[in-house]
Design a protein around this nucleic acid. Sequence first.
DNA 1: CGATAAACCTAT
DNA 2: TGAGATAGGTTTATCG
Length: 1041
Amino acid sequence: MSRSWKRSIGDDTADPRCAVTFMQTSVEESDAPAHTRPVRVAMTVGGVVPVLRVFGVTQNSASVCAHVHGFHPHLWCTTPQWQTLSGPEAMARFCDVLDVAVADETRNDDSARRVLEVKAMPRRDVMYHSRAEFTQPYFRVTLRRPCHITACRKALSRCERFKCLGLTAPFELYEADVDYTLRYMVDVGMVGCSWLTAPAESYAPRRSEKRDTRCQIEFDIDYAQLVAHDPEFAPYDGVAPLRVFSFDIECCAEEGHFPCPSSDPVIQIAVEMVVEPIAAEWRRVYTLGDCGRLAGAEVIACDDERQLLRRWSSDLVAADPDLIIGYNVQNFDIDYLMRRAEALGVIEFPYFGRVRRKKAESKEMTFSSKAQGTRKNMRAVIDGRVVLDVMQSIQTDHKLSSYTLNYVSERFLGERKEDVHHSMIAKLHRGDRNTRQRLAAYCLKDAQLPVRLMRKLMLIYNLTEMARVTGVPLSYLLHRGQSVKVFSQLLRRAGREGLLLPTHARDEAVVGDGGVAYEGATVLDAKAGYYEVPIATLDFASLYPSIMRAHNLCYTTLVPADRRAEYAETELTLTPTGDCFVKPEVRRGLLPAILDDLLSARKRARALIKTTDDPMMRGVLEGRQLALKLSANSVYGFTGATVGKLPCLAISASTTAFGRRMIDETRSFVLREYTVANGYPHDADVVYGDTDSVMVRFGCADVAEAMRLGALAADQVTALFPAPVQLEFEKVYHPYLLMGKKRYAGLLWTRADRHDKLDTKGIETVRRDNCAFARNTIAGVLRRVLVLRDVPGSVEYVKGRIEELLTGRVDISELVITKGLTREVSEYATRAAHVELAAKRRRRHAATAPRVGDRVPYVILRGHKTSKTYELAEDPVRVVERGLPIDHRHYLEHHLKLPLTRIYAAILPNVERALFSGPHTMGSAPQRLTRSVEHAAGISRFARVVKACAGCRTTLSDADRDAGLCAHCRVDAQSLYVQSMLEIDALAVAHHAHTAECQRCQRSVLHEVICANRDCALFYRRIKTQNDLREARARFAAVEW
DNA sequence: CGATAAACCTAT
DNA sequence: TGAGATAGGTTTATCG
Ligand SMILES: Nc1ccn([C@H]2C[C@H](O)[C@@H](COP(=O)(O)OP(=O)(O)OP(=O)(O)O)O2)c(=O)n1
């Protein structure tokens, strides 16, 4: 076991007489001239051939690179005139003609043969069920290189080229859109993160002078020799010890500027190396200039930046990590380091991948999906190492209102983190060894946090499991979407049954009303109201997957309308959309089988949740369970994805149609069965339902009885439907506030003796685009009404909150609204506050401005009555720094009033009078805050400077200017004096308290607080009291007492 | 001014 | 050549 920073080179160097077994972490494409192949392979070819580099780790933590030879990509095709191609002679001619055609479609390639083989094989199309054992042969076209696949597709589309063979009809393509890496993995039965064995004597170890990589074990092997193990069974269900390299850099920018790699130096890099899941850890901090000692970390002080970069790069190579992690490392750190090294001419720097003589790269990628939106990111490509950007993982798995390291640390680790403002970084760097030591401590912390997040979120375990269940390599999980996972599973299942996936022609999707291709689920009308009796919730378990399994919905089971006559009625299922599928007894579909796998994995994850009491752990396992559920639902979604690889709306539309029928039947059953006429004390009512759930008012007053009836009804309804469809009694809401479709809140009970929690759906409290003030206030109301059952208390609470707001006592951090920037600023059709601000910020400071996919935080400032809201959005940090005036009344009118009115509509008569009139709505924000935006922004800069009375803030006449008080206030100067002193005193105390709290956070009272954590309420409070104090003192000083 | 479209985010 | 799906509520800008 490797127990040092450097990955030890011990007895692990491969002895060809022993087998090598390792866990695969990455599969990468490369190529080499065929004549240099060190191992014998089945197919003899010339020119450049592809070589797969399979990287991984042994159980002893030795790094491995297997150069896998002899695997060539292929696609399939067929033609209605297949009979023309019977016989070896015709095939040989076809092969030759195709080779020429492919050559004509290929650029920059050697002249060696491209079409290596065309072989007719008995296969079938996954589309449609067919009884026939054999319909027509399919031709497997093996090509030399991955780039020839595209060329071959183009060649096959040119019908005229094949006229000479008597082929005039267009070819139909199959599996012509499969990535080479995935093709290989599917064909050899290798799933992501699986264990592999190169058996003894099957491989050729690389002698040191022939090594291409820096892995400890490096060998060549024929692809047919490398054995892939099933991850289902021990010992191949485990995870190898992975070496994880986490780092963070600090740069020194010009005053007030964001660092720019062409001019601004990298001054520190902190690294934490860990071996997962073993707790071995090493820490190093590379500093520019000498630096005091750090506990638990080695300081490597460099005199020169070039030396620092070189040292970091070579240390990374020595550490030989499998995983490189960090927070936002792809967008910032890695890219910056590489650009910086280039600017400094440190040519050896980018060679920190595992492949010698290959540079790491950083390139821009955009990912776009409906659920995730559009995200533009840099992606670091480092051969043999997987880059896991913890920020990106959290962005895909969690919906948060901010994704800064500060915010997520607090959220997931429960600890505040300091953020050193860039101007401070330069100061600390330019100071002495002590200030640099301080900086190094921050830098190190930022390198350690990603490791802690990774552990807490169990990223490695969760990703490994997902890679194994869905079959895709780790990198696909990090950079691609749901569809490739479904595609991978489909390819595997189809392959096992001799079926081929047609390559879908990309034409315009048939889009119906509102840009939707087919009808989705039913949402029952909500009987809005406040229910004081228990409402039982019945919910189908994994509804769409269970429908697809129950009715055997699949490409392979679909029967086209004109072939129904070939089947007995009992062999078919007619779906509500009029589509027809064969029953599982005739043929079991691929999709149901895929869903079986995913759902059993989900079941295992759910079972694990019950084994722990730690809420954080439960949360993580819950996330894993949800990810598997999402994958299962995405199997359904894949069939409905009209811009995807294999849409089949008969499947997706039938699934939703069954779902609609089921929710209707469930509703009718409950209404019909649970009646006074049938001996129950009350007539039941279905007050709401969405897609797969019904909310039932059985009429009983106690929770236990509602649970009993709910469970009973669930079982009865389950019996109405084919297995594995199952209606579950899940929970009771009591009381229940139903506001409308997709909007409700209720106290949730899963057991009769105590409630679980307040559950809120769709209401403002769960929406990230509401400010915390609105969310917290509404949540406070819901808690008082539904949990404490104290309506009058809730009214008082609201009034108090409104008063706080209007008197300027609400912290700015509670008034920050965030909205996602969903596209480029120029692409918006209408103006919107967050978009205008994003544009403004770009003009101010392009490097720190929000990018597509980022969330834009803003507050609304006071402005002229004629101003549009979108003109009044401003960056919260700027607002605090400059003391810009917030439009508190805007928050009342636009973020609180309507939501609260809707909530109270079911609870209180005359909401307007009860909540929004009275003295608390008068407000009396301090004058300082009532300056208009124009004033603050300097539009009235040329106006004569007026001076206000320190007592009442009225404008002072020239005569009173020097005194600082108007005639009226001068009368009571003495009490004003006391008042002012008290105000200054209170502010000083508050400022001291905030500073002290920040010092506690930074774990040092000896130093000035330098944190600028925008996601920390304390930061805003501290700056605000600081400003208030300064102004109060200035006002005081302006008076001739 | 009222209707409608655009934008966002959520429920399932 | 990549991208699971649809339903629906609310706020704000814009159109007529
Ligand atoms: N991201 C999602 C969530 C749901 N659905 C569809 C398919 C689901 O079967 C159905 C019901 O959704 P639920 O959220 O109730 O989840 P499930 O029924 O799938 O799972 P369970 O109720 O077992 O948690 O809605 C979907 O297509 N995509």
